[in-house]
Design a protein around this nucleic acid. Structure first.
Lengths: 193, 193
DNA sequence: TCCAACAAACCGACCGGCCGGTACGGCTGG
DNA sequence: CCAGCCGTACCGGCCGGTCGGTTTGTTGGA
């Protein structure tokens, strides 16, 4: 436990600073000062500044994927599963608001082997969601007159945009927003009665 | 015309590089080399690297605002105006895809007097859109059981996300996508029959 | 129980390199 | 001949990363 204290506080400081100032404009010196450690200590646990960014992404992607798979594994009617997934994705994204901010803003800064890795895992996540939509379409519950890729982009756009407008101290709780956005999304992609 | 040739090519090069590499990781040297001019020439027309970023934002915001006001001034039934606005915003955003990428990714890099200015103009734009939604609600055409701020975020999220997935060389034309996204949005915010 | 021996954790001064910006001089069209 | 236009060489500063050395912890043999 004691061993990872330095690494943890560095990661937290990096996350905060990256989210507020951006990755490129945050110096390693700022990070270690905010974390209360020295550069030497930091470079003992991380190989590069890039490592910090990747660690943030890694944690977020792992958590999101785990959530998605747990819900899908639980089973149920397709539309119910889809609704549960949507609500959970929004709620999780609100929990990880800072990570999301950094993710979308600074992904292009990752060096190449790791950037490819992140893109691939993100794609897998998208594909799993796409499979749910496809299943709903096959069952006749979801509309097919709009390309599936557009439907998916339409959903993830909401998730993506959260960090640009949602504030935990605002009028709505994360659960309310999650249900509202999910409702708007499902209403738009369900076949007319 | 000749006078602005240097300024134009610098701006174009800056836009391309900012969109692909990010603002902070693009050096002034790269920009002037890509534009085929020298640093001295560039600094004759721009005061700082910041100027380039602001010029890009300024052009985009002006164009978007002009479009919105023209459509609103043209008048008509509220829901028709709203549809026209939505389609136009998406189409315009696709035309300015690179600008959008830079905007959302690098806005936090703008120095403060100008950042405030950009945020303010963006807010005015949002407010004008919000007024349209409010009018639709007052007429009973749009639902009121979801906070208006959420409805608005729901729309702008689509616009925002375009630069992350849409490609002009992809299967769908900008007009198709504009109509599809507008349709999804309006369907979700219209009152049930 | 104590100490030698070693490893891991950590420190912080330092480095090469690049970056935004400037100084200044020459060119050139009117 | 002058005023704007542009080229070039250069600067101070900061940044990511390193490296030799010190401290702290741990192990094992007598």
């Amino acid at each position: 436990m004691k061993t990872t204290h330095v690494a943890d506080s560095v990661l937290q400081a990096a996350l905060d600073l990256f989210a507020t100032q951006g990755y490129a404009t945050t110096s390693v010196q700022q990070i270690v000062e905010a974390a209360g450690v020295t550069k030497g200590a930091m470079y003992h646990y991380f190989q590069s500044k890039d490592d910090l960014l990747f660690a943030i992404y890694d944690r977020m992607l792992s958590l999101q994927k785990r959530h998605l798979e747990e819900i899908v594994a639980r089973g149920g009617a397709t539309t119910d599963v889809l609704r549960t997934v949507c609500v959970d994705v929004v709620e999780t994204s609100i929990d990880l608001l800072a990570e999301g901010t950094v993710f979308f803003r600074s992904m292009h800064m990752l060096k190449d082997p790791r950037r490819k890795d992140v893109i691939q895992r993100r794609r897998e996540y998208h594909d799993e969601f796409a499979a749910l939509i496809a299943q709903g379409q096959a069952e006749g519950a979801l509309r097919t007159d709009v390309p599936r890729s557009v439907l998916i982009a339409h959903f993830f756009s909401d998730v993506h945009y959260l960090s640009y407008w949602y504030s935990p101290s605002g009028p709505e709780t994360k659960t309310e927003v999650a249900n509202q956005l999910t409702d708007l999304f499902l209403r738009s992609i369900t076949v007319e009665n």
